[in-house]
């Protein structure tokens, strides 16, 4: 019997008059890969933003690993082991690949003035260790990038940036990874490669769970255990891909018929 990792209970979010999420309930089991799908504007990104503490909720609660994380700040949510990528890439463009990935690994490294300024030998050790780990992680996604760890991210094409954003999310060894349209702008083959790379990293660790927002239904079919379908902020269907694919309401939502 699988265990619950994440639970949304009647989560609601209103932006002024717009109800972006309407009493949305769902769950995720440990080790599961969940597809979160729905037409544009149906509230997928908003549910990630609520989960990661970027926006306060209008109502409802979110539990992660039996802890109520409803009112946690973004930083506290990260500490519980939840990380994400952004639909519109949010990297630090002037910083190097290594720096961007290290932004994702803040909880293990010292934050004090003394350890950062004075204990330079320890710092150097941390640098050398993390550099190796970060480079190996990048190499999983692109051997070419692994040789350019000190190049600025701003000089890279969009696809490479997406890979780096995923590395930034994975470097801390998270428990739950939220992917918001990770393959936007990629070709079919690149998308499939990216997914295989993510699954490779997942297979190396122990039981990373994933929620993925994705428009490529081939990807959803291939990698998800289960799907949740949103439309206008409401959950309209839930089940394996095969189940939701032949759901009448889902077809209507995608075709825009009411």
């Amino acid at each position: 019997m699988s265990e619950r990792l994440l639970e949304f209970q009647a989560v609601t979010k209103r932006f002024g008059g717009v109800t972006a999420l309407d009493s949305f309930s769902m769950h995720l089991d440990k080790g599961e890969i969940l597809g979160l799908i729905g037409p544009n504007g149906s509230g997928k990104t908003t549910s990630f933003n609520l989960l990661t503490g970027i926006y306060p909720k209008t109502g409802g609660s979110i539990h992660f690993d039996d802890r109520d994380i409803s009112s946690m700040s973004a930083r506290e949510v990260y500490e519980t082991g939840i990380v994400r990528t952004f639909q519109r890439s949010r990297l630090c463009l002037p910083l190097s690949i290594y720096d961007n990935i290290m932004v994702g690994d803040t909880s293990r490294l010292p934050k004090g003035l003394w350890s950062n300024l004075v204990r330079r030998r320890a710092f150097r050790r941390q640098y050398e260790e993390t550099f190796k780990v970060a480079r190996d992680l990048v190499a999983t996604f692109s051997g070419n990038l692994a040789d350019r760890m000190l190049d600025p991210v701003g000089a890279l094409p969009m696809i490479e940036r997406r890979r780096i954003e995923i590395c930034r999310a994975l470097i801390s060894g998270p428990r739950l990874l939220l992917l918001d349209e990770p393959s936007a702008g990629m070709t079919h083959d690149e998308t499939n490669q990216l997914m295989s790379d993510i699954l490779d990293v997942r297979a190396r660790g122990e039981g990373l769970s994933i929620i993925i927002v994705e428009h490529e239904m081939g990807v959803i079919e291939r990698i998800t255990d289960r799907c949740v379908v949103l439309s206008y902020g409401k959950k309209i269907a839930e089940g394996t891909y095969a189940e939701i694919a032949c759901d009448k309401e889902v077809q209507n939502a995608y075709l825009g018929v009411d």
């Binding site: 970027i54 949510v77 990260y78 500490e79 990380v83 952004f86 002037p94 801390s172």
Partner: peptide, 13 residues
């Protein structure tokens, strides 16, 4: 400096 929201999402206070 570059992105407060992203920084917060990765545990930076």
């Amino acid at each position: 400096r570059l992105d407060e929201t992203a920084a917060a999402c990765f545990g930076i206070s």
